[in-house]
Write a protein that binds this DNA or RNA. Structure first.
Lengths: 208, 208
DNA sequence: GTCTATAGTAAGATAGAC
DNA sequence: GTCTATCTTACTATAGAC
């Protein structure tokens, strides 16, 4: 019974999504046309609109899939398996900071087509739109909260938590967009994460 | 004698460029159509092609203007007025680092329409193109050189100079694109620069 | 040099057959 | 549900008058 209408539809839906992910990564989200997706999925052009209202709607669906998949927040590994409930997250602790950065990096790495597409979308909205700043503050909320705790615990910070968090996020996402898609990557994930951790923890002056 | 053909042409050229800058900032480079530019300049559509072959060519012209204007390198204030020739640039010194960041920030601020447009262009090229990484390494060459010197002088760094430089550049440019165009800016330039300086110098742990 | 008018192109979106 | 064929729109780019 692989031939019911329902099943065929789901197969097509999945094929479209998978094709879109591939195209978004290869051509970029902005450059990908509806026909690129249907062709890559081996379907006719018209089929697209039986499943999605637009390319933007498709991206939102992919985003929902990503969230449903559990890799919830871009910088919030708080729900990691085995983590004790009330455990303190001290960002000033090297292990914790490294874990946070690694988690964010892993999420972006695993969902690169979607993450990169969202990034392109927010940039394409134009400077005046304010979407870049909006997305930055939204996606770094977990960072900001941890930094606020840190400050309230008496730890001095280089600036207001929201600004520091946004700065860290700008660094992470921008670097991920530049480095992760490369076929010949000049640095390993481990080296990047170590460098980011040390830079954020002790700065240039602090050394490794 | 304000009516020679030559003069009229130059006026139109200038009007087109100025209109383009305004439109790039308001609508974003990618969203700006040729007709948006000519309309904003108060000229007919066809005129555009008498001066530029395409929107990309126009952007290159604006970039050339920016360079010609003297604000040469995005992070190289080495040619600052009054600077002694052989003066050492120690990035690990707070004043020097702050000056470098401030110079880069000022260039971006003064040429925001062009800088933002180039940023949009490199992102729109798509992840697979590698243009994002290319632009990042290119624009942070001065940073990299200074960091290399620092390392050779025995100063420990959080990672390889090129990677650290690219990371700093990613932070700067991404933050500038998000914050500078906002009509109601949540942070002053001074606060941003102080925060960036302290973060890069001593990290989260170091405090201000 | 600049204008108006229009040709050309590419992509989004839909209608109706199967 | 999916296909082919087509309509529509928006923009780029050019031609020719002034």
């Amino acid at each position: 019974m692989t031939g019911t209408r329902r099943e065929k539809s789901e197969q097509t839906l999945a094929a479209l999504k998978e094709a879109a992910r591939r195209q978004f990564l290869e051509r970029g989200y902005l450059n990908t046309k509806i026909t690129d997706i249907t062709r890559a999925a081996g379907r006719a052009t018209g089929v697209f609109y039986d499943h999605f209202a637009s390319k933007e709607a498709l991206l939102q669906a992919l985003l929902a899939d990503m969230h449903a998949q559990g890799d919830a927040e871009i910088a919030g590994p708080d729900a990691d398996g085995g983590g004790e409930g009330g455990e303190q997250h001290n960002l000033a602790d090297r292990r914790h900071l490294h874990a946070h950065l690694a988690a964010g990096w892993a999420v972006m790495s695993a969902n690169l087509p979607v993450v990169a597409a969202l990034y392109e979308e927010s940039v394409a909205a134009g400077p005046g739109s304010g979407r870049a700043w909006q997305q930055l503050t939204q996606s770094t909320e977990p960072f900001r909260d941890h930094l606020t705790e840190l400050r309230e615990a008496g730890h001095p910070l280089p600036g207001r938590p929201e600004l520091v968090a946004a700065t860290m996020g700008a660094m992470l996402s921008s670097l991920a967009y530049a480095l992760l898609p490369l076929s010949e990557r000049p640095y390993s994930d481990a080296e990047i994460l170590d460098t980011l951790t040390d830079l954020l923890l002790h700065g240039i002056a602090g050394g490794s």
